[in-house]
Design a protein around this nucleic acid. Structure first.
Lengths: 129, 129
DNA sequence: CCATTCCGACTACGCATGTAAACCTTTTAT
DNA sequence: ATAAAAGGTTTACATGCGTAGTCGGAATGG
């Protein structure tokens, strides 16, 4: 197996991730639209969002499609891929690649709601089949 | 509530984390001993390890205790705290704070061994009580 | 005692990141 | 048509991080 990186380029930083989130939620979007959403959460200015968009494009995480003279941005990598890669990174780094200790950790920190427990149980049962 | 950071200072970077790992495994240790262990895994040189140790000390993650003219380093923060904080960060950032989607993600990526499943099931049963 | 060695502290440096201003071109409104 | 607005590109800059060299003092060996 080769690199597990979907984007040919580098890693997506945390700030960049916030931008990705809004584009994953609502796909082809212009820079100003992205700014509207993102700047509502983080307190960023337009130039900041522009920079992040550019970096994501050069990292191969976003693609652009010209609409008139404007650009529409859309993700080139799947959210599930990103999330999967990041999750695995954490599990590898902190738990020697084993998921059970992670689960135990979350349990200990009371980070598991009843709903979580139910859903996990359901998933478990499903996987057993 | 204030800051969720255990160490009064800043975050522990990934390289720093590697140093913390060896000290969590074997607590009061001199810089050269740390270097021996760490440099076996990552390909670092002594100065690099020294730098990381210093940074960890100034971040409040490590304490030093003079032994002769040498220093012995030991963790000031618990591994479980660090691991817990990091896990929660990831869950918050990627899964809206819910653990079940993380679990689903790992399941989908086949990141769960049979052993993991067994252990998680056991934990689940235990928590239900 | 003097040279070598060991060690911690300080300095260095390039790259990523967070954050943003300046600039240039094109469109739009007056 | 001309000024203003909109949008993408370039440049900027401080901080953090990965990685490492140098310095100065203490210990040790001869």
């Amino acid at each position: 197996m080769a690199k597990r990186n979907d984007a040919p380029g580098d890693r997506i930083s945390e700030a960049e991730h916030a931008v990705m989130e809004v584009l994953w939620e609502n796909s082809p979007m212009s820079a100003s639209d992205v700014c509207d959403r993102v700047c509502a959460q983080r307190d960023w200015s337009m130039p900041t969002v522009k920079t992040l968009l550019s970096r994501l494009v050069s990292k191969g995480a976003l693609g652009t499609e010209p609409l008139g003279r404007k650009f529409l941005y859309h993700p080139l990598i799947e959210r599930s891929d990103y999330v999967g890669t990041e999750s695995r990174r954490l599990v590898d780094r902190l738990f020697g690649g084993r998921a059970a200790p992670l689960f135990a950790q979350l349990a200990e920190n009371e980070a598991l709601s009843d709903k979580d427990l139910d859903e996990i149980e359901a998933l478990l049962r499903e996987m057993r089949r």
